[in-house]
Amino acid sequence: MEGYSSYFQSSTAAGNGNQWGYDTFKNFRHFSPIVQSHLQKVYLTLCFALVASAAGSYLHILLNIGGLLTTLACLGCMTWLLSISPHEERKRTGLLMAAAVFEGASIGPLVQLAVAVDPSILVSAFVGCAIAFGCFSAAAMLARRQEYLWLGALCSSGLSMLFWLQIASSLFGGLTSTFKFELYFGLLVFVGYIVFDTQMIIEKAHQGDLDHVKHALTLFTDFIAVFVRILIILLKNSTEKEEERKKKRRN
């Protein structure tokens, strides 16, 4: 309830003239140099992880290595990374890059399908994901501290709902409408996680937690989750349009 009340209070404040815009940019400038430096490291590490993930997808296209084994290897690297002391920065960074490569190989079949259907779909999905990620991250940074942390409870509930829906679909068979709901609702959930995780990283940095590798891993998983769903949506729309064109030609 406190999270909802703070949200409505901030919304009311936003409607009073230009105070919201001034305060938000003022808040951004008031990040301490340590927090600003930490965020720079986090996003730089995230960029390298995304490049490594792209390399993993390319390796799958060349060698067909993506599958269950790469998924398990990715989870293993993430678990290993989280179990190591933050002082072993070089080793943990290497594990993050390895996890990113394996993750890229795991989504390689989807990427390969997009390239086979229309390469522009892959570019559109990445650009759209990057724009969404940048906008929602910026919104979290410019907002007041802890303003959107209440999203964590909603996103966790949404993720739990998706989990049980997938189990039900696997047991009883999934309908097309259920798949669409999971796709779009999942996209909404992970967009919410971008906002929540960004503010959580900022709050932890203020409290002295400067583990930029772990924080980059958190944002990396959010980015990939959003990218995969946007890519599936674009592929699905492209396939439906192609089927409609074929029907028109036959008629």
Rank of each mutant, 00 (worst) to 15 (best):
T70Q: 09
H215I: 00
P119Y: 08
S83N: 05
G56S: 04
A168H: 13
G21N: 07
F223C: 02
H215M: 00
L68D: 14
Q36G: 06
R249W: 15
I65A: 02
Y184P: 04
L44D: 05
E88K: 10
S170E: 05
S169L: 02
F28D: 02
R145Q: 08
T176S: 01
T178R: 05
G134T: 14
T79C: 03
T239R: 12
I230W: 11
I224H: 02
L69C: 14
S137C: 11
S156F: 15
V42F: 01
L234E: 14
K204N: 08
Y22V: 05
A49W: 12
T198L: 04
G94H: 14
F28P: 06
C77L: 03
G208R: 11
G134L: 13
N18H: 15
F223T: 06
L50C: 10
V115K: 04
Y193G: 07
I230H: 10
L68C: 15
V35R: 08
G158Q: 09
V213A: 00
S170P: 06
F172I: 08
V111R: 01
T12K: 12
I230Y: 09
T71P: 13
V115P: 07
G15N: 11
L50F: 13
A116C: 07
V101N: 00
R250C: 07
S5Y: 15
L68R: 15
R145W: 08
N237Y: 15
L72S: 15
N251K: 11
S169D: 02
L63M: 12
M97Q: 05
H212P: 04
I131N: 14
F227Q: 01
M97K: 11
K236Y: 14
A125G: 09
I167F: 07
H212W: 01
K248T: 10
C47S: 09
C74A: 09
Y58C: 02
G108E: 03
E243T: 03
L62D: 06
G174K: 06
G173A: 03
A98L: 04
T70K: 12
V115M: 06
F25N: 03
L183T: 15
K26F: 02
L39A: 02
A99R: 10
Y58S: 01
S57K: 05
E240R: 13
G158I: 04
I131R: 14
P86G: 00
I34Y: 14
V123I: 05
S106E: 05
L142A: 02
I84N: 01
G67S: 13
S6I: 13
L162R: 03
P119V: 04
F223Q: 06
S6G: 15
K236I: 14
E103R: 09
C47Q: 12
C129N: 09
G94Q: 13
K241H: 11
E89R: 07
N16M: 03
I121E: 06
L154C: 08
L122I: 02
T70S: 06
G17S: 07
F31H: 04
C135E: 11
G174Y: 09
L96I: 12
K248G: 03
G67H: 15
T93P: 06
V51L: 11
G108W: 10
V127R: 06
S106R: 05
L82F: 12
A138V: 08
N64W: 14
S5T: 15
V127H: 09
D209M: 09
G173R: 08
G67A: 13
L219M: 08
H87D: 00
F8H: 13
F133D: 09
E182Y: 12
L154G: 10
R29S: 11
A49Q: 07
L183D: 10
E243C: 00
H30A: 00
A14G: 08
